[in-house]
């Protein structure tokens, strides 16, 4: 970003934001009938340099630390605030754009302006230069976060990259026979797909399919890998292992058919539902296997509702 653009953005914000968006509403006020001496505590404790003077909710003046010091010098601490305060005061309406406040600060050089409601003219807060800066910074920060989040979405990655074909590749290694780590690939992929802004239903289908495939690698093989390719139209997940392979692929696809050893069953799998589940949750499933060589499983989930994730 260059300087001119930054300035423009801040100027824009001063028109966008209203005075009431940035003011401090939790403010100290004093009654005009009190002696000036009481101001010492208020100004000191609150660390402020001026206090609005209010009678029955209505703003009647403003008294500043300069007024207080003057009284102190002249030994007039017992004087009433109403005799020492500034009565002709400049105010801002709560619903005015922030740029009006900026202009008034420039014009009058005051440290603060009381802010009143347009409807009943009652005091609603006070605005200082630092309130304006804080308000703008906060707004910039929010805008920045929104932008960050927006940039995280895959749809924008795909939109921003110029190429005839774009795809993202995520690769996971799966350890065989280690049930303590089974599921790490699927849960990792799930988080990744979410961050890419895919719809929850798509993410769920992809991660359930991947999880079942991962369980198969862990339960039956010495290890393998899972690679997910994501392009604007589909998620393709390729699961490969190095054996022992499936002797009868057709049989393996039958619901309820299982060759799972007892330990797999006791862990809540091995009921012959893994491959049927993958088939159920994917748009296309291809299984190839060679005994002693390994198994190659390809899962496709279409992204026709890609934009729904946004």
């Amino acid at each position: 970003m260059d300087d001119t653009r930054t300035t423009t953005k801040i100027q824009e914000l001063t028109y966008e934001l209203k005075v009431e968006d940035v003011i401090s509403k939790d403010i100290a006020t004093v009654s005009s009938k009190l002696p000036v001496s009481l101001l010492r505590d208020i100004l000191y404790k609150k660390r402020i340099s001026g206090v609005p003077v209010v009678n029955d909710g209505k703003l009647v003046g403003i008294v500043s630390i300069e007024d207080f010091i003057k009284c102190l010098e002249q030994g007039e601490m017992d004087a009433l605030i109403e005799d020492k305060m500034t009565k002709k005061i400049k105010t801002l309406y709560a619903d005015e754009p922030l740029v009006h406040a900026v202009m008034k600060f420039e014009k009058y050089g005051f440290g603060r302006f009381p802010v009143i409601s347009r409807k009943d003219k009652k005091l609603v807060g006070i605005i200082t230069k630092s309130d304006i800066i804080k308000g703008i910074l906060k707004k910039l920060e929010t805008a920045y976060h929104d932008e960050e989040e927006r940039r995280y979405r895959a749809s924008h990655i795909f939109n921003d990259i110029i190429a005839d074909e774009v795809f993202l590749k995520f690769q996971y290694y799966v350890e065989g026979k280690n049930f303590d780590r089974a599921g790490e690939a699927a849960t990792g992929l799930k988080k990744t797909l979410y961050r890419l802004g895919l719809s929850p239903e798509i993410v769920r289908r992809a991660s359930i399919s991947t999880y079942e495939a991962e369980i198969n690698i862990v339960a039956y093989t010495d290890g393998g890998e899972i690679i997910a390719y994501i392009d604007p139209h589909q998620i393709k997940i390729i699961i490969t292992d190095k054996g022992p392979g499936i002797p009868d692929v057709k049989k393996a696809l039958e619901p309820g058919f299982s060759t799972a050893p007892g330990w797999v069953k006791e862990l809540g799998f091995g009921a012959g539902m893994g491959l049927p589940n993958i088939k159920k949750f994917s748009d296309k499933m291809t299984l190839r296997s060679t005994v002693e060589k390994g198994t190659h499983l390809e899962i496709i989930i279409k992204l026709s509702d890609y934009r729904n994730g946004e």
Binding site: F179, D180, A182, G183, A186, T187, K190, P200, R204, S207, I208, T210, Y211, I215, L267, G268, F269
Partner: peptide, 17 residues
Amino acid sequence: LTSLTNIQVINTANVAD
């Protein structure tokens, strides 16, 4: 609701939302 207690129950819950 399950009487199975291993980490795959949590993984299952996670992937199935």
